[in-house]
């Protein structure tokens, strides 16, 4: 994330009704938002919906944006909240099916990747492929934090701003996410000795 000062200039132009400035903001952040949404939801259509809804909300509430803050973290926060809402709705829907099942016992739900295996598409290393699968088994909040830290390359402070949590919480969640992933890889029989990063 960069071009912060340019972002603010574009926001100010957008506030004056300059749609081309707003379109430039969309162009700058649409991919970041899509990747975040895709990592959370693993569904192209839903990820696109999140991007559109996020920018609609951005435009609608542009005049409430605190210009002393970074636009990038604000827009990521909006998208993150939308993703979490969708994830919860999806989970509720799956739970309602689950309750109708014979045993009426709520089992843990694992959401399955509905898209193509990106690692297969991009030919990444086997560890990256395994990690990508493992991240899908993390709770959404850990998935988000992994995406923000490693794919969006945000600093801890920026992640705290996006998630609206204290800095210590960000670090604690990231540590727990690392530990979860390490344990999941070990359970899958993928030991550190096989990690050729």
């Amino acid at each position: 994330m960069h071009k912060t000062s340019d972002d603010l200039a574009l926001v100010r132009l957008g506030l004056k009704g300059d749609e081309r400035a707003f379109e430039e903001l969309v162009r700058r952040y649409e991919n970041a938002l899509y990747h975040l949404a895709w990592r959370m939801l693993r569904n192209d259509e839903e990820a696109r919906d999140v991007v559109q809804e996020a920018f609609l909300r951005v435009y609608r509430s542009l005049d409430t944006f605190d210009q002393s803050r970074k636009f990038s973290t604000w827009v990521l926060r909006i998208a993150t909240n939308l993703c979490i809402d969708r994830y919860r709705r999806r989970k509720v829907w799956l739970l309602s099916i689950d309750v109708d099942a014979e045993d009426e016992q709520r089992r843990p739900i694992v959401l399955v990747d509905q898209g193509p295996d990106p690692a297969a598409v991009h030919g990444k290393t086997s560890l990256a492929r395994s990690l990508d699968r493992m991240t899908q088994r993390l709770p959404p909040i850990y998935r988000t934090i992994i995406e923000l830290r490693y794919k969006q390359s945000l600093a801890y402070e920026e992640i705290a701003e996006v998630l609206d949590v204290p800095l210590g919480t960000v670090k604690a969640r990231l540590h727990r996410a690392h530990r979860h992933l390490k344990d999941l890889l070990s359970e899958a029989g993928i030991g550190p000795e096989a990690w050729d990063a």
Partner: peptide, 19 residues
């Protein structure tokens, strides 16, 4: 190794026509 590998996580599939 885990942290290094996380930086190498595959990107989302390309999204032609997103804009």
């Amino acid at each position: 190794r885990l942290m290094a590998a996380l930086s190498e996580l595959p990107d989302a599939p390309p999204v032609p026509g997103l804009h």
